[in-house]
């Protein structure tokens, strides 16, 4: 999505964005590869807690949905479920080349090409895999964006819900999860 530079937040939203920027709780959606880059980011070498970031257990509690690596159509359905369970303001950080253009799975019958057709991605962290330095750099960028009120993916999703829904249905057939555990 194209970022507009107009800042029409009122003073309460600015204060709220200050809190949001300095306390980022993440739900890590790590069924693709790349989860291994996050323990060094979290532990003593890079220590993401000093920026107020930390992992949370459920999507309800989280502000950021961090999607690492490729997404198969099957996991994309779960990601959409998880994203719609989160409370706004909510942000998506997509991690690794596969979320940008499919990466090495560009011709796979089971993995999607680009994530931002289906969900509003606020920030991409490129690389295969991005090292912890890059991850920290990316999150610094996200903090700056939230402070300035530029991370508006969740509003974009609300406003263009039909467009996202249509893309989801075109690629997935249907978003509703039907498997042996949901019968």
């Amino acid at each position: 999505m194209v970022l507009d530079e107009k800042d029409n937040r009122n003073v309460w939203e600015k204060i709220g964005d200050y809190f949001s920027a300095n306390s980022i709780w993440m739900k890590w959606y790590c069924t693709g590869c790349g989860a291994i880059e996050l323990p060094p980011t979290m532990t003593s070498r890079y220590d993401m807690e000093r920026l107020g970031m930390g992992p949370m257990a459920t999507p309800r509690q989280a502000d950021v949905l961090l999607i690492t690596g490729y997404l198969s159509t099957k996991t994309l359905r779960r990601v959409i479920y998880s994203y719609e369970q989160m409370n706004s303001p909510r942000f998506i950080v997509a991690f690794g080349s596969c979320t940008i253009n499919g990466g090495i799975y560009y011709d796979s019958y089971a993995t999607i090409g680009r994530l931002d057709k289906y969900l509003p991605v606020d920030l991409y962290i490129a690389g295969c895999m991005p090292r912890p330095e890059v991850v920290m750099n990316g999150f610094n960028e996200l903090i700056k964006m939230i402070k300035k009120g530029q991370a508006k993916g969740w509003k974009h999703y609300q406003e263009n819900y039909e467009w996202y829904k249509k893309n989801q249905l075109d690629s997935l057939g249907e978003v509703i999860i039907k498997d042996e555990f949901h019968e």
Partner: peptide, 18 residues
């Protein structure tokens, strides 16, 4: 099934934005 990203101006402007 899965639309790919067009290589072009869109991608550049997304990075240039911030």
């Amino acid at each position: 099934k899965f639309p790919m990203r067009e290589r072009g101006n869109e991608f550049v402007s997304e990075i240039g934005g911030h």
